[in-house]
């Protein structure tokens, strides 16, 4: 759209052809004739006057019908009059209660009641979760060792007091000591003399007699005499 046309529309909206300046008339006449300008302006003015055609007014019930139709279809989010009244009544009630409570606190006739009041006993349960370390020293006697000693003594007593026949097996306490067992068995069998073969007990040493020791004897012969032998 050219600048001239744009200017022409502005002129048409605002001025009749006679009201235009010479320059404006030249702009207008460069595009349309004077008659066209006059007629176009008349169209504009007449159209503006036509903007309120006389028709029957809108039905007053349309507004309510519209709201009811919308509520029916969608459910209106706003509050109804009854809801507003309820909210107001609740507000008034709360306000009255607050005011009454405030006055009651301020005009309490027996403030000393607080001093005379019985102590309040409250029982409650408190759950405490706490972790701690306790060191406990426990002393005990060596009962096991003492018992072993007593047991040993009992065994000796048993050996000494209980007669044992040769065919009877030895008490278990002595079975682990073969040498003493044998000696003990010999004693019990009446072998009062020394019938004990020491070789069984002590390993025999094998050696030579003095006379068999030739080197020792040669050494003795060569030794000077002190004269005592001859006396």
């Amino acid at each position: 759209m050219s600048k001239l046309t744009e200017n022409l529309d502005q002129l048409l909206d605002s001025y009749s052809f006679d009201q235009l300046s010479v320059e404006q008339q030249e702009v207008a006449l460069s595009q349309i004739t004077r008659e066209e300008y006059t007629l176009m302006r008349e169209v504009i003015l007449s159209s503006k006057q036509l903007k309120a055609p006389a028709i029957p007014p809108l039905d007053k019930d349309l507004h309510q019908q519209l709201k009811q139709a919308y509520r029916k279809q969608h459910g209106f989010k706003g509050k109804t009059t009854a809801q507003r009244w309820s909210a107001l009544a609740l507000g008034v009630l709360l306000g009255a209660l607050t005011t009454a409570g405030y006055h009651w606190l301020r005009t309490d006739p027996q403030p000393e009641r607080v001093e005379e009041a019985a102590p309040v006993v409250m029982t409650d349960t408190i759950y405490v979760q706490k972790t701690d370390t306790l060191y406990v020293t426990v002393e005990s006697e060596p009962k096991v060792i003492t018992k072993e000693i007593i047991k040993y003594i009992d065994r000796e007593t048993e050996v000494l007091t209980v007669p044992i026949t040769p065919d009877q097996p030895l008490p278990l306490a002595y079975q682990s000591e073969p040498i003493i067992n044998k000696q003990l068995q010999d004693t019990l069998q009446g072998n009062y003399f020394n019938n004990i073969d020491l070789a069984d007990i002590i390993p025999m040493k094998v050696g030579k007699s003095v006379g068999e020791e030739t080197e020792l004897m040669d050494l003795l012969r060569e030794m000077p005499s002190d004269g005592l032998d001859n006396e």
Binding site: D9, E35, E36, M40, E42, V43
Partner: peptide, 26 residues
């Protein structure tokens, strides 16, 4: 905007031509 201006201008011109014979001033 240009489209709107163009449509209005052409409408005015068209109406003026159609109503030429009913111009009260003429």
């Amino acid at each position: 905007l240009g489209t709107v201006k163009s449509r209005i201008h052409h409408t005015l011109k068209k109406l003026a031509i159609q109503l030429h014979q009913f111009d009260p001033k003429q």
